[in-house]
Structure formats: C-alpha cells, structure tokens
Nucleic acid binder design. Structure first.
Length: 254
DNA sequence: CTGGGGAAGGGGCCC
DNA sequence: AGGGCCCCTTCCCCA
C-alpha cells in the first residue's frame, strides 16, 4: 500500500502548507487542535483565517461514499455517530460484500476481478472467491479476518480493526483537515503545526518532532553507519540511502 | 548525486 | 479488546 494511501491531502504535491502561518493561527485555535476521533470538525474560515483554512474537504463517511460507491462509508447509517466506523467488521458483512474500492488504474480484467490473497487464484465473482477461500486448510483458515476494503487478511480481529482504520481515517486534524488512522499519528502531525520538538539530540543542539527522525539523525553522528552495501562495503545512515546507492548502480569500489 | 531532515504509514507489543 | 507506544520503513524535498 502506498504511503499516502487514502490520506487526504489539501495541498498540491510539491507544496507544503505555510507552517509559519499555521503556527500563528495555532495560538488562536489551540483548544481546537486535537480531537481524538470525531469527523467533520474543521473550524470555519473566520476561526482559522485564510492561512489555515482549507475548503470543507473533510474525510468523512459522506466523502468516502461519494468517492467509493459501495465502499467505505456507504453503509453507515445516516444518523450514525462520527468516528471509527467498524460496523463493517461484522462477520455478516464480511461474508457478503465485495472487497473495497478497486483502484481504477489497477483494475484487473473482468474475468478475474476477485483474487485470493493466499494463492493469487482469480475468480470472476466474489461468491466464487469466498467458496474458494473456505477450501484452504485449517491453518490458513485461522487467518480469517478479512478487510472488506482491500484483500488483506489478519489472524486477529484487533489487527484487522487496526488495519481498517487506515481506510476510515477517523482522526482528523482540526487545523488543516488532514485525516489519520491513529491518534498518535495525528499528534505527530499536530507538531508540524505547533513546532513542538520534544526529542533532542544529545550530541548536538538539534531537536526533532519525531523519535524515529532523531534516531536517523543520531546515525549521522556515528562513524560506522548502520546500513552497509554488500558490494562495496560502504555504509549509510539510512536504509533508503543504501537502497538509492544500490539502485543507482554500485560500482563495487568505494 | 549524496546526505540529511521532515512527515507519515503500518505492524507488533504492552498495559 | 482497545489504546498508546515503539520501531521500522518509505517518500519527498532541499542543501
């Protein structure tokens, strides 16, 4: 799944929000910053000001259903409360509904629209796929919690629920409307508005909003980097740098 | 081109 | 069972 899967972005690619502008607004909107889960809670322009306000593109059930007819949100009762919509988890629905919104770009041929995530065998109907899934051995059958929005399967309901949050994105930033799957992801995002950087480097004066980024930074202080090219023995502070090095063609010497 | 920072995603573990 | 947190990873952008 792409990193940005279903994450609502309100600024065009290549453009970052004006954080300094947002920071100024943060003082005004601070009490509105974090709302654990409810949806559709973007303050009006008069509250946030033009710098922080984005059009009402809240990633809620209504938008989901408009984008994915028959997909996320379309089955939620009109009066259903906001927040995490997990009604989709009932075994009843999991059995009878097709998996979620197929990507238009990756839509398979009509004859194999339903593919078994286990053995990749394709079926023209969901019923055929369901029947096929039951034919798998017991050990495989134990991994029986299937996502209705995609074809991922999990061994536990908890794991499935966690995964489904990545489809429903119940945590919405009140500053910019961006939606996240988990509250702590939203908290990390809010730091981009507030400028809070609670993770400090013990070797230099730099501070980071994210622990993982601090960890990556600490590698820059290390003489021996963590990731080594098997061909030329050159070391890198990040795996991504090593991958990039390998992709661009390691010459085999340093 | 390379290295580094920033932001974000997911799985797994613990309480 | 659910939430919080940790860790790892990826992607984008910039110097």
């Amino acid at each position: 799944m792409p990193r940005s899967f279903l994450v609502k972005k309100h600024f065009s690619a290549g453009k970052k929000p004006n954080y300094s502008e947002l920071e100024r607004q943060a003082a005004v909107a601070a009490p509105l910053l974090y709302e654990p889960c409810p949806l559709a809670v973007i303050p009006p322009p008069e509250v946030l000001g033009p710098g922080a306000y984005y059009p009402p593109l809240v990633w809620d059930a209504g938008l989901l259903s408009s984008l994915f007819p028959g997909g996320p949100g379309s089955e939620a009762a009109p009066g259903a409360g906001p927040g995490l919509e997990l009604t989709a988890l009932s075994s009843e629905e999991d059995e009878g509904k097709s998996s979620g919104p197929p990507s238009p770009a990756s839509a398979p041929p009509a004859g194999e629209r339903f593919r078994c995530a286990r053995c990749a065998r394709a079926f023209s109907t969901f019923a055929g796929l369901s029947k096929h899934k039951q034919s798998h051995c017991d050990a495989q059958a134990r991994k029986s919690f299937s996502c209705k929005y995609c074809e991922k399967e999990y061994v536990s309901l908890g794991a499935l629920k966690m995964h489904i949050r990545s489809h429903t994105l119940p945590c919405v930033c009140k500053m910019c409307g961006k939606a996240f799957s988990r509250p702590w992801l939203l908290q990390g995002h809010i730091r981009t508005h507030t400028g809070e950087k609670p993770f400090s480097c013990t070797h230099c004066s730099r501070a980071f909003a994210d622990r993982s980024n601090l960890r990556a930074h600490l590698q820059t202080h290390s003489d021996v980097k963590k990731y080594q090219c098997k061909t030329c023995s050159r070391t890198f502070s990040r795996m991504s740098l090593l991958h990039k090095h390998e992709e661009t063609g390691c010459s085999g010497s340093r």
